[in-house]
Write a protein that binds this DNA or RNA. Structure first.
Length: 421
RNA sequence: GCGGGCGUAGCUCAGGUGGUUAGAGCGCCAGGUUGUGGCCCUGGAGGUCGCGCGUUCAAGUCGCGUCGCUCGCCCCA
């Protein structure tokens, strides 16, 4: 074992894992395009302020999980722990608020300083969408539908559930928070240490504590849903109604809350029981407060993010790599001609593995290991006739084809786009 | 930051109660096969047994420490 290792919580992506990864991203990208979402790529690091302002100083992400550093110019920078803040920053930086609503898709690495475990790494990858500038419940519905569509397109039907809740508008949320804190203050003795800390910083989070004692207290706590004002209640009803129209099944989870400060109204998660402690596949919601928080004009937004590794782990057999055509030259004349023939074929869109090393048997072995579908046997005899012998490596059928027009003969014979991404 | 499990070849793993040159399967390289792959046969390369200290005549094996991986807690995708 070499003592040169990757940084804890990081992984090299290659082979099957890379192909799974590409499939997830490709599937999501194509699906998002069907809904009119255009791809955006923002830098993987931002000024620390971007995340501090958007996520809130007291969130776990900001207080203990950020990769923060100072560059040579003394700027305080952070490797992005999530991408919504960065996307909104880009929207503001580029004046994109002129063309609302904006529909954006992204994919890329995120960084959080946490102890790695199953489905959780320090560098991980997310796909996500943001719909900025639409305040209507139908926007929430479309965003959720897109998430559901991506999971279906990945072949994951039946392996996840959609949970949904409403945090209400800021007024409802603040009012409920006071009620909840009042109730919890009266039951301090029964709360876990963690929750006592949350009581100061982020009381809503106590609702989804896994501690048994906390759960007992929460079970009798005043319900968020009962403290929504009329507007918030109507909004949530419209979202549920819209999902119903689309036949998207969901269960209401009154204890589903968000750790991040900018969320309002809808909060949702697609969760799976198959990944141990990391059940969330897609998590998202409405963040009407975020754009303002980052210094822009009050602008509504809704979106979600999904962990690519988590989706990749669930998504079955990896797509196979492209099966090339193997070109097997035998003899000095053929050897000289081979590179040119390979070049012609590749320019015609045919993947070619040129087997130029060793005895004929070794060259065929190469072809086999490259998982070639066809071998083009090119000996000096064939070359003299201006032909190649084509061998189907699956069926062993052989036939002789003229070199002239070989590109089109092969192109039509081969199936297209074996890549899946 | 806290707790459990595990570190032997590129990969998956064997190596009763300590005992001589540390093994297998898969994979890799080559030969059997100088114009035809998969199967088969033969050979080869590849190991600081994670690292350090200790116990012992003797440590892959026992003890302590440490590093790493992994699963879980917190939190999250």
């Amino acid at each position: 074992m070499a003592d040169i290792r990757p940084v804890r919580g990081t992984h090299d992506l290659y082979g099957e894992a890379m192909r799974r990864h590409r499939r997830v991203v490709g599937t999501a990208r194509r699906t998002a395009a069907l809904y009119g979402y255009e791809e955006i790529a923002t830098p993987i690091f931002e000024f620390a302020e971007v995340f501090q302002r958007s996520l809130g100083e007291t969130s776990d992400v900001v207080s203990k999980e950020m990769y923060a550093f100072e560059d040579r110019g003394g700027e305080r920078l952070v490797l992005r722990p999530e991408n919504t803040a960065g996307v909104v920053r880009a929207v503001l930086s580029n004046g994109l608020l002129q063309g609302l609503p904006l529909k954006l898709f992204y994919a890329g690495p995120m960084f959080r300083y946490e102890r790695p475990q199953k489905g959780r790494q320090r560098q991980f990858h997310q796909i996500g969408v943001e719909l900025i500038g639409a305040a209507e419940p139908l926007a929430d519905v479309e965003v959720v539908a897109l998430g559901s569509h991506v999971l279906e397109a990945l072949g994951l039907e039946g392996r996840y559930v959609l949970e949904i809740n409403s945090l209400g508008d800021p007024e409802s949320r603040a009012a409920y928070r006071d009620v909840l804190v009042g109730y919890l203050e009266g039951h301090k003795g029964r709360l876990s240490e963690d929750s006592l800390r949350r009581l100061e910083r982020n009381p809503l989070r106590i609702l989804d504590s896994k501690d048994e004692g906390d759960r007992a207290v929460v079970a009798e706590a005043p319900r968020l849903g009962e403290h929504l004002n009329a507007a918030s209640r109507d909004f949530f009803a419209a979202v549920l109604d819209g999902l119903g129209e689309l036949g998207i099944a969901c269960t209401q989870n009154p204890n589903l809350v968000r750790g991040l400060d900018y969320y309002t109204h809808t909060a949702f998660e697609f969760t799976t029981p198959e990944l141990g402690a990391q059940s969330a596949l897609i998590a998202g919601g409405r963040y009407d407060g975020l754009v303002g928080e980052l210094g822009g004009p009050a602008t509504p937004g809704v979106g979600w993010a999904a962990g690519i590794e988590r989706l990749a782990m669930l998504s079955g057999e990896p797509p196979p790599p492209v099966r090339p055509v193997a070109l097997v030259p035998i003899g000095p004349e053929a050897g000289r001609a081979a590179a040119g023939i390979a070049d012609r074929l590749r320019r015609a869109g045919v993947a070619v593995e040129l087997a130029f090393r060793g005895k004929p048997a070794q060259r065929m072995k190469r072809a086999d290991r490259a998982n070639a579908c066809l071998a083009l046997f090119l000996g000096d005899d064939e070359l003299a006739q201006g032909a190649v012998k084509l061998r189907d490596l699956d069926t062993k059928d052989e036939e002789t084809l003229p070199l002239d027009g070989l590109e089109s003969a092969l192109a039509s014979r081969l199936g297209q786009d074996q890549d899946g991404a």
